[in-house]
Simulated assay, not measured.
Amino acid sequence: MISERAAGSDWPLALCEVCVQVLPGVDAAALVLYGDARAQEMVSASDGWAVSLEELQYTLGEGPAVEAYRTGDLVLVGDVRAEQSRWPGFAGAALEEGLAAMSAFPLQVGGIKLGTLDLYQRRPGVLSAEAVADAAVLADLATLALLENELAAADDKLRMEVSYQDVHLATGVLAAKLRMSLEDAFVRLRAHAFAERRSVLEISRDVLDQRISLEHLAD
């Protein structure tokens, strides 16, 4: 059953909850929109664990979801431990978070790429063929709903579970102050986040609140 909190207009949360409830082996789910390497919004997530794993991929710039969006192909990972050469940063950090397996379904129509539906597992093992087929249907439904959302009036737009607007702002501040490109500024934020074992969103908020010296990020 979908909880009352997920009912009504909050279909993204309902979809994530359904993934956990009906897909065998799935412990958490997240729905994410992508633009480019810096532009990302988390539409919804089933729990905080999924949020932390999405932030981990965003901070590191690698992982199954990043690859699924980039290539447009379904990415099935039955054992994260075996993928440390494929995603050296993400695999190790994700294992520490308790992730054992993951599936990332691209959300796209033709050449239009929107994001990914990501399914997380605490135990290793690739999803069954039936579960993959069911998840693919849910991903298609999410894609259509997101496309409709793009056409909706401003007041009817979805509210993001986690917004990375502060990352965009901090990237702009860093680029202006240190006279570098936005891409280089974003790389500095990511590198600092990785070194501090924190999310790039947390580091960005520290930059905006002046809790981190910009000179420190210039090194």
Rank of each mutant, 00 (worst) to 15 (best):
residue 210 Q to D: 11
residue 1 M to N: 08
residue 45 A to Y: 04
residue 23 L to T: 11
residue 36 D to L: 10
residue 199 S to G: 07
residue 68 A to R: 02
residue 102 M to I: 15
residue 46 S to L: 10
residue 198 R to P: 11
residue 107 L to T: 05
residue 23 L to M: 09
residue 78 G to Y: 00
residue 139 A to K: 02
residue 195 A to F: 02
residue 107 L to S: 01
residue 67 E to A: 05
residue 197 R to N: 14
residue 126 V to K: 12
residue 29 A to D: 11
residue 114 L to Y: 05
residue 29 A to V: 10
residue 199 S to Y: 01
residue 146 L to E: 03
residue 51 V to M: 04
residue 186 F to A: 08
residue 28 A to M: 01
residue 86 R to W: 05
residue 184 D to Y: 06
residue 59 T to Y: 05
residue 66 V to Y: 15
residue 218 A to Q: 14
residue 73 D to A: 14
residue 8 G to E: 13
residue 36 D to C: 09
residue 81 R to K: 13
residue 15 L to D: 12
residue 136 A to R: 05
residue 210 Q to V: 12
residue 184 D to T: 00
residue 122 R to N: 07
residue 154 A to M: 10
residue 115 G to T: 00
residue 196 E to C: 09
residue 39 A to N: 12
residue 171 T to Y: 01
residue 182 L to Y: 10
residue 157 K to H: 15
residue 211 R to K: 15
residue 52 S to D: 15
residue 57 Q to A: 03
residue 141 L to E: 09
residue 94 A to M: 11
residue 197 R to I: 04
residue 93 A to C: 10
residue 203 I to K: 00
residue 161 E to W: 04
residue 178 L to T: 07
residue 17 E to G: 01
residue 162 V to F: 04
residue 191 A to I: 11
residue 192 H to L: 13
residue 78 G to F: 00
residue 131 A to H: 04
residue 160 M to A: 03
residue 210 Q to F: 12
residue 178 L to V: 04
residue 169 L to G: 00
residue 4 E to G: 04
residue 160 M to S: 08
residue 146 L to Q: 08
residue 72 G to S: 13
residue 93 A to W: 08
residue 206 D to Q: 15
residue 5 R to S: 06
residue 131 A to Q: 09
residue 119 L to Y: 02
residue 68 A to K: 07
residue 117 L to W: 00
residue 37 A to Q: 15
residue 12 P to R: 01
residue 180 M to I: 15
residue 194 F to K: 14
residue 193 A to G: 06
residue 29 A to R: 05
residue 62 E to H: 10
residue 178 L to H: 07
residue 101 A to N: 07
residue 13 L to V: 09
residue 131 A to R: 04
residue 79 D to W: 07
